[in-house]
Design a protein around this nucleic acid. Structure first.
Length: 438
DNA sequence: AATAATGATTACGC
DNA sequence: GCGTAATCATTATT
């Protein structure tokens, strides 16, 4: 390091062309005779052999000398330029990558879930917001909520530490490589552009690792959410009043228990299904739909089991109907629209069971073939019962009225030919709202 | 603790 | 999108 004079000297020689090499390169062109070549080769070998003989200091000195040569920068510049024009330009085309949509999606989700957001305060707030938005977890189960939040923040913490680790590693590696390249740029032509490129490559690699981290984090969050927010896991039974209302509607529309969207909303409102029971994935109206879906299928599956219930509700609606009509000062109401619908027909796949159940419950023996034709008589019976009892009808009478019919064995609730039934069930005050709110 | 009841979800067809 | 049928997972009941 300190022998400047010697360096100067040696580098002068070196740059002029290798002492032995340059000459014969020029000489042995035409290949005059093998003699000269042989000697050249010998020369080279000799030189190679002597390289190892050189002391380390000497080698370093030479290197340094080369580095300091005044022509060197220019030469390297040219070489770099050439390199740029060849290899780099070929690869340069695919250089700029558009921001990976997948990564963007993950980022967005993490942000939305409050995992990637700002530190604690905002993060948990975001988490709460996300939870509230998605699950609508009411105030009643705050314990679960906090549990959820705790787990989420755990995930969040892991995510952040991992991310930091990766970032750090990336930086370390990048600086290392950069140093290396910079150092090498003294001995071989490396343009700053190339270094830049290398850095970007490294970053890309690391970002793909980060994406994996984000991916798995997202998965974890999703699992957490599905565990905590899945309504199925935290289902609450409807309260008594709600089921009454629903049942009432169901049995008074037995012929066609498919409430319209409006009716559903009305029912949902009436049932007062609490907010805690409604989730975003299954809003109130959907709960009603679920209920009716379940009810229909379960009723159909086993009518016998529901017979009593049917009777009960039928009787009730019958009573209410009479009350209404009595109020209207019309003793013998002509059409009894409300309950007429309930005598409707629906089709079942297992008609045998149905028939049996009807038989056993009624004590009346119906002929299978003519069951479908009994609607009118049932309506009559209903009317009769209403006018006669005027109050609680016995289960027997009711069961007669509400035993299902119209066995078509093709499954499904075919709309019955019931004449005037499509009106609302419990007429009461103002069933015709036609509000169209929302 | 078994078992029934029940609300919600899923798969599939229309 | 809605309906059915099957199924799941929880809650109520025995």
């Amino acid at each position: 390091m300190d022998e400047q004079p010697r360096l100067m000297h040696s580098h002068g020689v070196g740059m002029a062309g290798h002492p032995g090499l340059a000459p014969h390169m020029q000489d042995g062109t035409a290949g005059t005779d093998g003699e000269g070549r042989k000697q050249d080769i010998g020369d080279i070998l000799q030189q190679i052999m002597t390289i190892t003989d050189q002391s380390l200091d000497e080698a370093q000195a030479r290197k340094h000398a080369l580095n300091c040569h005044r022509m060197k920068p220019a030469l390297f510049n040219v070489l770099c330029e050439i390199k740029e024009k060849t290899v780099l330009s070929i690869r340069g085309a695919q250089e700029e990558e558009p921001p990976d949509p997948q990564l963007m999606r993950l980022d967005n989700m993490l942000l939305a879930e409050g995992v990637a957001g700002p530190e604690k305060g905002g993060g948990s707030a975001a988490a709460a917001a996300a939870a509230a938005a998605t699950g609508g977890i009411g105030a009643d189960n705050s314990a679960e909520h906090s549990d959820y939040r705790a787990k989420l923040s755990q995930i969040r913490q892991i995510y952040h530490t991992e991310l930091e680790k990766y970032e750090q590693a990336c930086n370390e590696f990048t600086t290392h490589v950069m140093n290396l390249l910079r150092e090498q740029s003294r001995t071989r032509p490396i343009s700053p552009k190339e270094i830049e490129r290398m850095v970007s490559i490294i970053h890309r690699k690391f970002s793909s690792i980060q994406m994996q981290l984000k991916q798995s984090t997202c998965e974890a969050v999703m699992i957490l959410r599905s565990r905590f927010l899945d309504a199925r896991r935290k289902r609450r039974n409807f309260n008594k009043q709600a089921t009454e209302i629903l049942n009432e509607y169901f049995y008074s529309h037995l012929s066609n228990p498919y409430p319209s969207e409006e009716a559903k909303e009305e029912l949902a409102k009436k049932c007062g299904i609490t907010v805690s029971q409604a989730s975003l994935s299954s809003p109130l109206s959907r709960q009603v739909s679920n209920w009716f879906g379940n009810k229909r299928i379960r009723y159909k599956k086993n009518i016998g089991k529901f017979q009593e219930e049917a009777n009960m509700y039928a009787a009730r609606t019958a009573v209410s109907a009479t009350n209404v009509s009595a109020h209207g000062s019309q003793a013998n109401s002509p059409s009894t629209p409300n309950s007429a619908g309930s005598a409707g027909s629906f089709n079942m796949s297992n008609s045998g069971d149905l028939f049996m159940s009807v038989q056993s419950l009624n004590g009346d023996s119906y002929q299978g073939g003519q069951v479908g034709a009994n609607i009118q008589s049932q309506v009559d019976t209903l009317r009769h019962v209403i006018s006669q009892t005027g109050g609680y009808s016995d289960s027997l009478a009711a069961s007669q009225m509400y035993s299902p019919q119209g066995i078509n064995t093709n499954g499904g609730w075919q709309d019955a030919p019931t004449p005037s039934s499509v009106t609302s069930p419990t007429e009461g005050p103002g069933s015709v709202h036609s509000d169209t709110s929302n």
